[in-house]
C-alpha cells in the first residue's frame, strides 16, 4: 500500500462538525398546510476531516448524506450543532465571511448533468468563478486552460455547452470549477454515482491525485462501499441521520463492528464470488429503512437488526470509542 501513514495520526483537523442536527417538516399536514412531524434528516452528527485526509461517508438513500454535505457548506442552516474550519467557528459567519469561506470549502455534486447552467459555455462557466472572486485578473484564460488540463480535459471544450459533454467530462468540469478558487477542503456528494465504472475510475484517480499533489482534504460521499473503501483513509457509516460506526478504511472492511455495517458489507455483490450473500442467506439484513419522524425509542437500527437485545429497545446507544480510531454506536460493543 502506498502513502505510508494514511490514517494521518497527528495531523490536525481541517473541518469539524459537532452534534449537528437538521430536521425538515414532514408527515401529515394540517388544514393550514403545516406538517406536525419533523423528519430527523441529520441527528447529532459528529465528523472530522483531517488536513489532506479523505473521509468517506456511506449510507443508504435518504439517510441524510446530502443534507450533511449542505450543512457543512452552509448551503442550508442547521437547527443545532457547531461547525469549524481550521479551528475557526464557521457556524455564525455572515454574508461576507461566507463568501470568504466559499474560497476555502467547495462542493462537487452527484448529478453532473444538472449542475451546470445549460446556457453558458464551459469557458464562461469557469471565467465567471474567477471574476466573482476577482482572481487572476488579466490571466483568466491561462488559469482556466490550466485548470482544464489539471482535471484532464482538453481546452477545446471551452467553447462547448455543458449539454455537449459526456457525464465523465461534466464531472471533471465540476471539479475544475470547484478547484478554481483553490479550496483546501472539497465535499464530493456522490460524484461517481451517475457514472460508468470506466469513468468512475477516472474520477477516483483524480481525487486521489488532487489530494497527493495539492494536499486537498475531501469528504467523499457515496453509497457504494467499494468506492468509499478504495478512496478513503477513514470511513463513517450513516444510518437514518446518525453516524453508527467510523474507523480506518482498511479496518472497517476487515472487521466491521456494527451489525448494520456488517450487513452492508455482506450485501455488496462480489465479482470474486467469495462472500456470496446468496449462498449465505442468513447474514442478510431484512427490510428497509423507514423515515424517522420522531426520535426513536431505543436504537434506530433495532427494527432490522439481526442481533437486537432487550436494551436496544429502551436506550439509543451513542457513538463511543472502542479502540484507537474506532467508534461505534451499538450496545454490543459498549462495556
Amino acid at each position: 500500500m502506498t502513502g505510508g501513514n494514511r490514517e494521518g495520526a497527528g495531523r490536525p483537523a481541517i473541518f469539524e462538525a459537532r452534534l449537528l442536527e437538521k430536521t425538515f417538516p414532514a408527515g401529515p399536514r394540517d388544514l393550514l398546510g403545516r406538517s406536525a412531524g419533523r423528519l430527523r434528516a441529520v441527528d447529532w452528527v459528529d465528523i472530522s476531516v483531517l488536513e489532506a485526509g479523505i473521509l468517506g461517508l456511506v449510507g443508504e438513500s435518504g439517510c441524510g448524506k446530502s443534507t450533511l454535505a449542505r450543512l457543512a457548506l452552509r448551503l442550508i442552516e442547521r437547527d443545532a450543532g457547531s461547525l469549524s474550519f481550521r479551528g475557526e467557528d464557521i457556524g455564525a459567519l455572515d454574508g461576507r465571511g461566507l463568501s470568504r469561506l466559499r474560497r476555502s470549502m467547495q462542493i462537487v455534486f452527484q448529478n453532473p448533468f444538472a449542475s451546470f447552467n445549460p446556457r453558458f459555455r464551459v469557458g464562461t462557466v469557469l471565467r465567471e468563478v474567477l471574476r466573482v472572486h476577482r482572481l487572476a485578473p488579466g490571466a483568466e484564460r491561462e488559469r482556466t486552460e490550466g485548470m482544464l488540463a489539471r482535471v484532464g480535459l482538453s481546452k477545446e471544450l471551452l467553447e462547448r455547452y455543458p449539454g455537449e459533454l459526456s457525464g465523465g467530462q461534466l464531472q471533471r468540469l465540476g471539479f475544475a470549477r470547484a478547484l478554481l478558487v483553490e479550496p483546501a477542503f472539497v465535499v464530493c456528494d456522490e460524484p461517481v454515482s451517475a457514472l460508468d465504472v470506466s469513468v468512475q475510475a477516472q474520477i477516483l484517480n483524480l481525487v486521489a491525485e488532487l489530494r497527493e499533489s495539492l494536499g486537498i482534504a475531501f469528504l467523499f460521499i457515496a453509497h457504494d462501499l467499494r468506492v468509499v473503501e478504495h478512496i478513503s483513509d477513514r470511513v463513517a457509516v450513516m444510518y437514518l441521520g446518525r453516524i453508527v460506526e467510523s474507523a480506518g478504511s482498511g479496518e472497517l472492511y476487515l472487521s466491521p463492528l456494527h451489525p448494520y455495517t456488517r450487513g452492508l458489507i455482506r450485501a455488496i455483490p462480489s465479482p470474486a464470488g467469495g462472500s456470496s450473500f446468496l449462498r449465505d442467506r442468513a447474514s442478510l439484513i431484512r427490510g428497509e429503512a423507514s423515515r424517522l419522524l420522531e426520535a426513536p425509542r431505543g436504537c434506530r437500527f433495532r427494527p432490522r437488526c439481526p442481533v437486537a437485545m432487550a436494551r436496544c429497545g429502551q436506550e439509543e446507544p451513542g457513538l463511543t470509542g472502542v479502540g484507537p480510531g474506532r467508534e461505534v454506536a451499538c450496545w454490543l460493543h459498549h462495556s
Partner: peptide, 8 residues
Amino acid sequence: LDVTVQAQ
C-alpha cells in the same frame, strides 16, 4: 435500490 434492498 440500496445495496441491502438490492440483496433482498
